[in-house]
Write a protein that binds this DNA or RNA. Sequence first.
RNA 1: GCCGGAGUGGCGGAACUGGCAGACGCGCACGACUCAAAAUCGUGUUCCUUCGGGAUUGAGGGUUCGAUUCCCUCCUUCGGCACCA
Length: 866
Amino acid sequence: MAKGAAVKPAAPAVKDISYNPRVVEKKWQAKWEADKLYRAVIDERKPKHYALTMLPYPSGDLHIGHWYAMIPPDARARFKRMQGFNVLFPMGFDAFGLPAENAAIKDGVHPMKRTYANIERMRKQMRSMGAMFDREREAVSADPEYYKWTEWFFIQLYKHGLAYRKKAAVDWCPKDNTTLAREQVVGEGRVCERCGTPVIKKNLEQWFFKTTKYADELLNFDGIDWPQTVKTLQTNWIGRSEGAEVNFHIASEKELGNQESGIRNRDGLIPPDSQSLITVFTTRPDTLWGATFMVFSPEHPLVDKITTPEQKAVVDEYKAQAARQSDIEREAADKEKTGVFTGGYAINPVNQARIPIWIADYVLMSYGTGAIMAVPAHDERDFAFARKYDLPIVPVIQPEFQNEAEMGNPSTGSGQRMKAAYIGDGVMVNSGPFNGTKVNTEKGRKNPGIRKVIDWLEAQGIGKESVNYRYRDWLISRQRYWGAPIPMIHCEKHGWNPVPEDQLPVLLPEDVEWKPTGESPLKLHPTWKNTTCPVCGGPATRETDTMDTFMCSSWYHLRYLSPHYNKGPFDQAEYNYWMPVDTYTGGIEHATMHLLYTRFFHKALRDMGITEGNEPMLQLRNQGMVLAEDNSKMSKSRGNVVAPDVLVEKYGADTVRAYIMFFARWEMGAPWDSQGIEGTARWIRRVWALFTDQTPPTTASVEVKKNLRRKVHQTLKRVTRDFERFEFNTIISSLMELMNEMYKAREAGAAGSADWNEAAEIYLKMLAPVAPHIAEELWTNHLGKPYSIHQQMWPKVDEAAAKEDVIEIPVQVNGKVRDRIMVPAEASEDQIKSAALASETVQKYLEGQEPKKVIVAQRRLVSVVV
RNA sequence: GCCGGAGUGGCGGAACUGGCAGACGCGCACGACUCAAAAUCGUGUUCCUUCGGGAUUGAGGGUUCGAUUCCCUCCUUCGGCACCA
């Protein structure tokens, strides 16, 4: 800091206002491109750094959000490069997808034509950013040379048993006319992630990837530096829950015949055959003795078998009604529970209790086994159901310190007086051999009660430890044209077989018609689907569905390594050098989609010997969102989008880049402020003037120069740290501060001195990643340094120079700052202490009293307590 | 309901590991330059004030010599999940 420095006015500098970003930026962009300055090639002598930013969909126009996503990572990649890393920073296009096809249905423009025109336009716009993308690494997922390998990967997954076909109730978007992965259905209304239309269920046979095989491994984030929020989102999405599977069986004739004699049936137990076995999943096996009824999902296959003739009419009616309801209606959590009795009974294997079987739509066929044991005393949902239909409630967990009135009286075997289900800890009661066992609120084996019961169930052969996941396999079929074809052939005799690999890629036919029929144009194409069976050579048909575009983006980071390589998806040498990705950046909206798929993909490939290591991306950072000025979301339809092209035209790319980095915390985002950019523009112009003004001769004092040098190295230290941490806004403010100091130093006559020249050099090097054009122009043409600034090494901090020699220390009396004292930086704590107590102001506040305590805190503050 | 993030001047935000709250910028006010405006430059700018000070980082409490920072309770807001047995 320049505190205490005598600022002597010098002759005013002569202003140079020749800064014209349009000329400067065009000039350098052309030169850098001609020189292939940003070409990244393998160089074993240098450490590598793979910086990756999520690739855009070619929507047609680059908007401010793209800049926000790409520019700060670009600046950081440039910084890494100056630090001596060999940096790969590629860009490409996620070019398949619905919007282009939907537009084609409207106006007949072929998706391919539209997509490639959009790409061309966006390439041009991207050039104006002045980013260090390696153009020769660009990959476009809709290029046959790309999707050939997307198809190839499908076949590898198929061959390794990770791609399979099954009929299932799948989510269908009636507007986009296609199935969707579970992840693409969002929100309370269960709507299509893309178009907001409520989805419906369809029973279809579709292709799936076995993502669930990796569920446990995907929960492990060891060795990767990812934001906690993403890890939490993925963990919740996978939804692992630990418990047990328990085998109940349908009560036999004999068991039913005994019903007068009560719950127990000691003699003549008929061993349950597999037909009458009902397996349930429960996270609370410790409450098994409290199961007083069972509930089946209305779709459960055993429902018809157990339903008695008397109950058939109501059961059929309930089933029909459940089938009619949409998912939204059915899954509304606050809906009152309904259900009907089937007339059938099951036998609880732990105590032979004969319990009624109901069906209810709150039990989902898609989770667990589609059937549950209901323990109304200790589960809120079961409690509500039991109350409504007057089913017995038997408490089996007794809280240790609660009176009977609240709990009901367990000794009578009745929980009818309970006001709510009890889900806390306590002691097992009414539970045969387990009475007295303590139960806490831990999940799974960590809970002593659950652990003991699971071990016992396994010993008895009536159940086993089990884990269930909310996570589903990834549905990848899309009934659309504009995607990578699923390379499978169906033959009447030989079923499904992959297209022989030497016949890849299966190319999309170009002569297709756009009709809003809801069927894939591939299916309607007269000849495309006809082919021969790879097994017998007989007539066969191609799969006409295409792949979810998330399949393309699951491996694009590999295609960038060698986008035109034709012997495999990537060149092994490139892989060995560049992978894994060192820093990955993008929006958090992909937490449970792309980011989970790409981890799955990498692990599956690893198990096939194609990739190495457990994770594809070591470090992940998410940028926030740029909102419109009124805090609303930017969208074309609202007409509130900020067009970067206009800003570049007005201020130049360097200013837009700097403002993008400055105006918000990058990971948070903020509403756009079109006035705020004026401040950044002013700064850039002032930087230009600082370096181009004609300055008076050097007259500065030693002190002024020393202070300048201190500020330079303090700033360098801070900027270096902030680049590492993705704290871009403070990089800019530090550079603004240093510039202000340099203006003051110049006014004090520092220009032209050795310290000034060092400051100028370091300043431009720090500016180079942020504002590459102006930094290059000032570096080569005004400082006369060798081209290019972007090939210079990042400067080293001189710690000694950065140190203050006099420090100002605030003195608190009873927690309030009363004075500030100046002491030498090397002063001992004792010296600081006496200096503080010597202060007149401090003495005044002491009012003659002896201080009780004097704390000198890390030479930063003195605290006097009276 | 459950899980996670955030809450600091008129605004965006800063504050290293518990140690001077409000850096930097926008906006605003005043001044210089100008016939005038813009641009530019300079000064000021958390609030209250009886000009001594006092209050202040969503609210309340706690730990501490000292809390924007740690702990507890609550409020607001954003995001995710949601009858998951």
